[in-house]
C-alpha cells in the first residue's frame, strides 16, 4: 500500500508551505499532489513555484502529481489548466496530472497525454464511466470520498483490467465548492476584495450548529466537514480495495500522521491502537461513515 499526500487545501503563508514540503521530502510518503485546487485568487505560490517544489520532491524520490482546480470558471483558470497540461506533455518538468474537471480531461486528450489521475471531483460512480476515463488515458482513480468501500469494490470488479485506486484516508472531507467565498462572507467582505482573509487559517474555520456541535469547515469557496475522516481504524477493510491512501495536509502533525499510517500498514500498530494514537493529532473528532456506506459524519464501528 502506497501513501499519497493530497493537495494542500488551505491557504498558508509562502514560507510555511515551503517549510512544510521540505519536511515532507524525507517523510515516508510515496506520492505528493501539488497545486492550488480551491481558489484561483490565492497566490502565495504561483504555478511556477509549485513546479519548483515538485522538482525538490521528485529529486527526493517522490512521485509528483499536479492537481488541477476543481471549479474552473474564468479564462484565466483555463490558462492555468493549459499550463499544467503543457508541463506534462512537454516533459518540462513532466509531472503527472490529476484531472479534476472534464475540461482537464479534454485538454489532456488534446495534448496526447496518457497516464493521468482521474481526480475525486470527476463524479466517477460506475464502471462504465471509469472505463471511459481509462480509455481516455487515466491510469489511477482517486475515488470521491462519498463512495463506500463496497461500492468502489463493485466498480473495480466490473472493469476489464484493474486500475490503481486511491482512497481518501485522512483529513477534513472536501464536501462542496461554490462561486461564493464563505470565509469572505464571514468577515463581511466580498470575494473580489476578500483581503485574503483565509491566509494562515491553518485548518479552515469551524462552523457549529446552534447547539455548539462542530459540523462543517469554511475554507474559502470550499466547504469541508468539521470532523476528520480517518480510515486508520478501517485499514483491514481497505486492503484489497485500494493501492494508495490519500492523506490531506493539515496545519500540524501531518508528517506524524503519515508516519503513523506507515507504521500501521507495516503492522507495528493495530488499527485500533493507531486510531487512538492519532486522536491527539486530529483537529476534530474522527468520522468514517462514507467508507461504510453511511452518513459521512458518523464514526462507525462494526458490531
Amino acid at each position: 500500500m502506497k501513501l499519497a499526500l493530497g493537495p494542500l487545501l488551505y491557504y498558508w503563508p509562502r514560507q510555511s508551505v515551503l517549510d512544510f514540503y521540505a519536511d515532507i521530502a524525507d517523510s515516508p510518503i510515496d506520492s505528493v499532489y501539488l497545486g492550488e485546487t480551491v481558489c484561483s485568487r490565492r497566490h502565495e505560490l504561483r504555478l511556477e513555484d509549485w513546479l519548483e517544489v515538485g522538482k525538490v520532491l521528485a529529486a527526493a524520490g517522490k512521485e509528483v502529481v499536479m492537481s488541477s482546480q476543481g471549479l474552473v470558471e474564468s479564462e484565466s483558470d483555463l490558462k492555468t489548466l493549459r499550463r499544467i497540461v503543457r508541463q506534462c506533455a512537454d516533459g518540462e518538468p513532466g509531472f503527472r496530472v490529476e484531472a479534476n474537471d472534464m475540461g482537464a480531461v479534454r485538454l489532456l486528450g488534446e495534448a496526447g497525454v496518457r497516464g493521468w489521475v482521474a481526480g475525486p471531483t470527476l463524479n466517477i460512480f460506475n464502471p462504465t464511466t471509469l472505463q471511459l476515463m481509462i480509455n481516455a488515458g487515466a491510469t489511477r482513480w482517486a475515488v470521491a470520498p462519498e463512495i463506500s468501500g463496497a461500492a468502489l469494490a463493485e466498480v473495480r470488479a466490473a472493469l476489464a483490467a484493474p486500475i490503481e485506486t486511491e482512497v481518501f484516508a485522512y483529513g477534513r472531507l472536501p464536501l462542496a465548492h461554490s462561486a461564493r467565498c464563505f470565509t469572505a462572507r464571514h468577515f463581511n467582505l466580498q470575494k473580489d476584495t476578500c483581503e485574503f482573509r483565509c491566509l494562515a487559517i491553518n485548518d479552515g474555520i469551524t462552523l457549529r450548529t446552534r447547539e455548539g456541535e462542530p459540523f462543517l469547515t469554511l475554507n474559502g469557496v470550499q466547504t469541508q466537514s468539521a470532523r476528520v475522516h480517518n480510515l486508520l481504524g478501517d485499514l483491514a477493510s481497505v486492503q484489497g480495495k485500494a493501492e494508495l491512501l490519500r492523506i490531506s495536509p493539515q496545519g500540524t502533525h501531518t508528517r506524524d500522521i503519515v508516519e503513523l499510517f506507515r507504521a500501521t500498514l507495516a503492522g507495528a500498530r493495530s488499527p485500533a491502537e493507531a486510531l487512538d494514537d492519532c486522536r491527539p493529532m486530529m483537529v476534530e473528532a474522527p468520522c468514517n461513515g462514507f467508507w461504510h456506506g453511511r452518513a459521512g459524519v458518523e464514526q462507525y464501528v462494526a458490531a
Binding site: E146, L175, A176, H177, S178, T223, G296
Partner: peptide, 20 residues
C-alpha cells in the same frame, strides 16, 4: 449555493445525496 453535482453536504449529514 454550491456547484451542482459537486456537493456532498447532504451525503455527509444523511448518507443520501443529490448525486446518487
Amino acid at each position: 449555493v454550491m456547484v451542482e453535482g459537486r456537493c456532498a453536504l447532504s451525503a455527509y449529514a444523511t448518507g443520501e445525496s443529490p448525486n446518487c
